[in-house]
Structure formats: structure tokens, C-alpha cells
Deep mutational scan, measured.
Amino acid sequence: ILEEAISVVMSGKMSVSKAQSIYGIPHSTLEYKVKERLGTLK
């Protein structure tokens, strides 16, 4: 489920907030994982 949510957000089909409510994943977790994948994590 997490992988799917990350893919959807990264493809631009859904915002982090929308994915959070649909997949039930905490906003901070989703945002962290997306940034980690994009290489923008500081």
C-alpha cells in the first residue's frame, strides 16, 4: 500500500494530502518517502 501511494504521488496523479486520506498513511511518512525517492531529503 505504501509503495502504491508513493508511486501515485510521484507520478503527480495525487497530492500527498489526498493520498494520505485514501491510503490511510500518515502525511509525514508519505512526504518523507517521496522526498527520499526524489533525492531531496535533507
Rank of each mutant, 00 (worst) to 15 (best):
I1F: 11
I1E: 13
I1T: 14
I1W: 08
L2N: 05
L2F: 14
E3G: 02
E3V: 01
E3C: 02
E3S: 04
E4D: 03
E4A: 04
E4P: 00
I6W: 00
I6D: 03
S7Q: 13
S7Y: 05
V8R: 10
V8C: 11
V8E: 15
V8P: 00
V8N: 09
V8D: 10
V8H: 09
V9C: 09
V9K: 01
M10A: 09
M10Q: 07
M10T: 10
S11P: 01
S11I: 06
S11Y: 04
S11F: 05
G12T: 01
G12C: 01
G12I: 00
G12L: 00
G12F: 00
G12V: 00
K13S: 09
K13C: 03
K13G: 08
K13L: 07
K13F: 03
M14I: 08
M14D: 02
M14T: 06
S15E: 08
S15F: 00
S15P: 08
S15Q: 03
S15H: 03
S15T: 14
V16C: 07
V16E: 07
V16W: 02
V16H: 03
V16S: 10
S17R: 12
S17E: 15
S17Y: 12
S17G: 13
K18N: 10
A19S: 04
Q20H: 06
S21E: 15
S21V: 11
I22N: 08
I22M: 12
I22L: 12
I22V: 14
I22P: 04
I22R: 10
Y23K: 02
Y23T: 06
G24Q: 08
G24V: 01
I25R: 01
I25Y: 02
I25G: 03
P26D: 12
H27R: 14
H27E: 15
H27D: 10
S28F: 02
S28R: 12
S28L: 09
S28G: 13
T29L: 13
T29P: 04
L30E: 05
L30S: 04
L30D: 05
E31I: 02
E31C: 10
Y32H: 14
Y32D: 13
Y32F: 10
V34W: 03
V34D: 06
V34M: 09
V34S: 06
V34F: 02
K35R: 11
K35A: 12
K35C: 07
E36W: 00
E36Q: 11
E36P: 02
E36F: 01
R37M: 02
R37V: 01
L38K: 13
L38I: 06
G39N: 09
G39C: 11
G39T: 11
G39Y: 08
G39M: 11
G39V: 09
T40D: 11
T40Q: 14
T40N: 10
T40Y: 07
L41Q: 14
L41C: 10
L41Y: 13
K42Q: 14
K42F: 07
K42G: 15
